[in-house]
Every structure is written in C-alpha cells, then in structure tokens.
C-alpha cells in the first residue's frame, strides 16, 4: 500500500455474533496528521482503534498501519507505535519515574540515530507536567495526573504513530485544555501521526487536521473541521411572509437571496428569518438519534445534511 499514508483502511468489517459493529469502513490517514475519529457512544470507534492497534482481530477488510497488517505485525512494528491506555489501578506501588524507566527500557534495542529511543525520562516527565510527582506512588495520583502518566507511557518509545482512545474522558475543563496543548506539542515536535477517538465535537474541531465521523458502523463524513462546517452551513433556510402568506426557501447565498427578495417585493416582505444550520446542531441530532437506537437512520440523516 502507499507509504504517504500511515494508516490505510478498506472495507473494514467487524461482527460480534449477530451484531455488525462496523459495516465497511474506508479511510486513510496521512503521515504526520492528527486525525480524530468522532462519533456517538457505540458507533464503533473503540473497535476501529483496537483493530488498528493490533489488539483486536477484524472480521473482514484490508488494513495497513505503517505498512503492516496490525493483526500479523511483529515486535519491530510494535516499537514504532504508541498506545495510550486508559488504566485505572495498575502499578499502584510503582512511582511514575520508575515505571517510565522500566517500560521505556523495552525500546532501547530499537533506537536509531534519527530517532533515539526511548525518550529521556526527566524530559518526558517535564513535558507531561509530572516532575514534582515523579517519586510519589502512582496509587496517590489524581485521575488527571494518572492520565498524563498514561500519555507519557504511550509516547516513551518516541512512536511514529500514536493511538489515543477517548483520552479526555472524565477530565475537568482545565485538565482538558492542558491535554490539548500536549497533543499539539507532540504532533508539532516529532511529526507524530496521531489517531484519537472522542465523542466530543468541540475536541475534534480543536485538535484534528481532519475529522472522521463514525455512525451506524460506517464513516458518514471525512473532512477538515472547516470543511465539515462549511458543508453543513452551505445552505441556509430563509423564511418570510408577504401579506400574511408564509414562504420558505433554502439558499446557498442567503444575503443575495434576501437582496433579491427586497428588490422584488420591497416593503411587503415581513417576518424575515435566516436560519444557518450549524455543525454542532447536526452532530447533536446525529448523537440523539443514534442513542435512541436508530443508528442507521442517524447515519443516513447526517450523510444527507453533509452530503
């Protein structure tokens, strides 16, 4: 497969028993890009990312990650990828410094002059803001501090590709902002390709170069945040009335449309309204319908809105 792409997915399907979780997913992620996999809970985000991490075996389809099939990838491939896990109580007696040193050790044989592995532990602790807490038992860290340690462990091997599954779930707004800064620094500093999942549109817009929206087991949109917004916002709805009779029209250029309206009807135009649908509204509608159990209809509707 082509090497400008860190990830290439074609016709990916996943089925648990009778339940189709992914029904044919296609996408590519370019090297160095930050890509967000956005979607409501149960849309198949975690399944997708776990297949790409090589932790889960897919039912069908072609997947290439850094040039290898993750289901059969070797330990050299493993050394080039990083996974940020959502831990909850592992290594309670270890300290952050000791654990980073221990796990980082596995990357030493994979060090190259261009990409020295692992990261220097002190430098990494500084990057994630844990220097002060480096020698405290991990059991005594707060949820947010623990998650920063999870990120540090994920990147200790200086990965070319980093996976993050719902990295900010359970964060307060402050921790979330700090985390976003960290992700941007990572991507800027090392040209690391980053794939992260979230159910938060705002987060996706802030972090991603491109956003994939997953619903009903398939991709319903694949675009830049700005592109997504402009697709939804392309057509505005214009409502007005003339002598008590109500009219509705959609217009790509509502300002021009209204100018024309006034030129034609002048003072007779009344009750004028211009409704610009926003990405957020469309996404919220998608989530609501998805959570009501009608995943297929939700995916369909969203495709029409953005299509």
């Amino acid at each position: 497969m082509d090497h400008a792409h860190a990830i290439s997915v074609r016709g990916l399907r996943m089925r648990y028993g009778d339940n189709d979780v992914l029904t044919g997913v296609d996408f590519d992620v370019r090297a160095g890009e930050v890509r967000c996999l956005l979607g409501p809970n149960g849309a198949g985000k975690t399944t997708t990312i776990e297949i790409l991490e090589g932790f889960r075996v897919r039912s069908a389809g072609e997947v290439s990650v850094l040039g290898q099939d993750p289901a059969r990838a070797d330990e050299d491939w493993r050394a080039r990828t990083g996974v940020v896990l959502q831990s909850w109580r592992d290594h309670p007696r270890w300290t952050a410094r000791r654990l980073l040193t221990q796990l980082g050790g596995y990357y030493t044989p994979y060090s190259t002059p261009e990409r020295p592995r692992p990261y220097d532990v002190e430098e990494l602790l500084e990057t994630v803001g844990l220097t002060e807490l480096a020698d405290r038992k991990i059991a005594t860290l707060s949820g947010g501090q623990r998650r920063r340690l999870d990120v540090a462990i994920g990147i200790i091997g200086r990965p070319e590709l980093l996976f993050l599954d719902e990295p900010t779930a359970g964060f307060d707004p402050q921790a979330r902002r700090e985390f976003h800064g960290l992700v941007r620094r990572l991507s800027g500093l090392e040209q690391t390709t980053i794939l992260l999942t979230t159910h938060d549109l705002d987060e996706a817009e802030k972090l991603a170069d491109r956003v994939l929206i997953l619903a009903g087991g398939r991709i319903v949109a694949d675009d830049t945040p700005a592109g997504l917004a402009s697709r939804v916002e392309g057509e505005a709805q214009v409502r007005w009335s003339i002598e008590g009779e109500r009219f509705t029209a959609t217009a790509a250029d509502p300002t021009g449309f209204v100018r024309g309206l006034f030129a034609e009807h002048g003072e007779d135009v009344a009750d004028l309204e211009i409704l610009r649908p926003r990405l957020e509204d469309s996404y919220l509608a998608l989530v609501q319908q998805h959570e009501a159990g009608d995943a297929e209809a939700a995916a369909q509707m969203f495709t029409e809105v953005t299509g």
């Binding site: 991490e53 932790f55 330990e75 050299d76 493993r78 050394a79 990083g82 996974v83 896990l85 959502q86 831990s87 909850w88 109580r89 592992d90 290594h91 796990l103 596995y106 990357y107 044989p109 994979y110 462990i153 994920g154 091997g157």
Partner: peptide, 20 residues
C-alpha cells in the same frame, strides 16, 4: 488482577513486553 487492571495490556503495547 493484572489482566483486568491493564498491567498486561501495557506490556502488550511495548515491543517484547509480554516476554518481560
């Protein structure tokens, strides 16, 4: 316990981590 709390998974995510 360690397959539940993520210790095992952490080692699965690093090269040759499971052997270690």
């Amino acid at each position: 316990m360690e397959k539940e709390d993520g210790t095992l998974l952490r080692h699965k995510a690093v090269p040759h981590g499971l052997a270690g």
